[in-house]
Amino acid sequence: MPSRSIRPSVGGLQRQRGISLFMVMMFLVILSILGVTAIQSSTFSARIAGNEADRTLAFQAAESALRDAEKDIGGSCLAANCRTTPISPEAADIFGVTCALGLCLPDATTPVWEVKANWTTAGRAATYGTYTGATALPVVSQQPQYLIEYFKLGEAFVYRVSAIGYGANSSTQVMLQTSVKALK
């Protein structure tokens, strides 16, 4: 009997090589998708961290404006353009409906801190350091501002101070308020 030799099919080898190429390509596509997703995730996280840092800067600027207003109320300033005496509610004529120099009469219908013009019109809101001689804050897009209102509660006077602080980006803003009891 003659012996037969069995030869492998050439078509079978070519099919196997095509399948392995396809598998490697699919693996590369999956790795590429994972890499792009990881880059997008880290970029998003960096943006969140940057926005939070800017919000913290704006918060600190607003807090500085509150402290500056408290000094302004107390009259503790030695600079040339400072108010000469502590702000006194008995001198009510210095408070006005137009919030000139940051001193506002309360409004029964709309709180003065909600009126956009009080923050954007020159000469209304007091700018940080104007009446206390404080050094300008670095890094912020603009210096913080404040408004002072006074109220009579029974026999006592109370000041409400509203302050707005800005971050390095001008669209980052934080508004804070505090109350200060007037000293007689």
Rank of each mutant, 00 (worst) to 15 (best):
V10M: 13
G12A: 13
L13Q: 12
R15K: 13
V24L: 15
V24H: 05
M25T: 14
L28A: 10
L31I: 10
I33R: 04
I33C: 13
I33N: 08
A38W: 05
Q40T: 14
F44P: 07
F44Q: 15
A46R: 06
I48D: 08
I48F: 06
A58P: 01
F59H: 08
F59R: 07
Q60A: 08
Q60K: 09
L66W: 01
A69N: 05
K71R: 12
D72N: 10
C77V: 01
N81R: 11
N81C: 07
C82P: 00
T85H: 09
P86G: 09
S88A: 08
D93F: 11
C104Y: 02
V112K: 04
E114T: 10
V115D: 13
A117V: 11
W119A: 05
W119M: 04
T120S: 14
T121M: 09
T121E: 08
A122M: 12
A122E: 12
R124G: 07
T132P: 01
T132W: 01
A136V: 02
A136R: 00
P138Y: 00
V140P: 00
S141I: 00
Y146V: 04
Y146W: 05
E149D: 06
Y150I: 09
K152D: 12
L153R: 14
L153C: 14
V158A: 04
R160Y: 04
Y166E: 00
G167F: 01
G167M: 02
S171D: 14
T172M: 10
Q173H: 06
Q173M: 08
M175N: 07
V180R: 03
A182E: 04
